[in-house]
């Protein structure tokens, strides 16, 4: 799995240099039914704001009950633009990946992001995790 992700990352980086895509680095916190999860990601976005990325997230350790799982999630995400109003963007983010390197899950999310400057944007994320609502905050660095 990790090799596959590394290969995908390499391929996307190569594609980015050829087609002039944008690279985005993401850091986020999301409040889910499994507790507060912390995550990181890298996303490649083309000139039509369509993107593909790799995500890692897991429950913040101090929130986990004794013997409970951290629900570590590795996966890919698609970024599909819904609407853009000036610096405000609405994006649909379906994620697909493995929890605990074993359980296949789909996490649909919607991101509302506001571009603070050329390099930085902040956003709210709302989604569905295990049939329960999740919400969180995201900071994105545009490279």
């Amino acid at each position: 799995m990790k090799r596959l992700i590394a290969f995908g990352l390499l391929l996307c980086t190569f594609g980015m240099f050829i087609h002039g895509q944008e690279l985005q680095l993401q850091s986020f916190y999301s409040k889910t039914v499994m507790g507060l999860q912390q995550g990181y990601g890298v996303r490649f976005v083309n000139d039509k704001a369509l993107g593909v990325g790799f995500i890692y997230q897991r429950t913040v350790k101090r929130q986990v009950i004794k013997g409970g799982s951290l629900y570590p999630f590795w996966g890919v995400e698609l970024a599909i633009p819904i609407k853009r109003c000036g610096d405000l963007r609405f994006t649909f983010l379906p994620k697909l990946g493995l929890v605990s390197n074993q359980f296949l899950v789909v996490i649909p999310e919607v991101e509302t992001s506001f571009k603070l400057n050329r390099w930085l944007s902040a956003g709210l994320i709302t989604g569905i995790r295990a049939r329960e609502a999740s919400n969180g905050l995201k900071l994105t660095i545009h490279i």
């Binding site: 799982s69 629900y71 929890v99 605990s100 074993q102 359980f103 296949l104 899950v105």
Partner: peptide, 8 residues
Amino acid sequence: AQTLQASS
């Protein structure tokens, strides 16, 4: 539709 997310 719902999927299992942990071994327990």
